[in-house]
């Protein structure tokens, strides 16, 4: 663990801002993921019903 962190610190940071978020709940990412799932359902069932219509 330590070696890994040293490794990271050894790199010249690109443009790191100094602040870090301590309490972070990825609410937006959860919403994004839900949207992704809905899009997936639309595409998948779109083809599914197209398949059924061609039986």
């Amino acid at each position: 663990m330590e070696a890994y962190e040293q490794l990271s610190e050894a790199k010249p940071a690109l443009a790191d801002t100094s602040t870090t978020l301590e309490k972070f709940e990825p609410k937006g990412a959860i919403a994004f993921f839900a949207g992704l799932v809905i899009l997936g359902l639309i595409i998948w069932f779109g083809i599914y019903f197209l398949m059924l219509s061609r039986i």
């Binding site: 972070f24 990825p26 609410k27 937006g28 990412a29 959860i30 994004f32 993921f33």
Partner: peptide
């Protein structure tokens, strides 16, 4: 997909 979205949300 989720992990990257969360990583980018952190950045934003």
């Amino acid at each position: 997909a989720f992990t990257l979205a969360a990583s980018l949300e952190y950045a934003g």
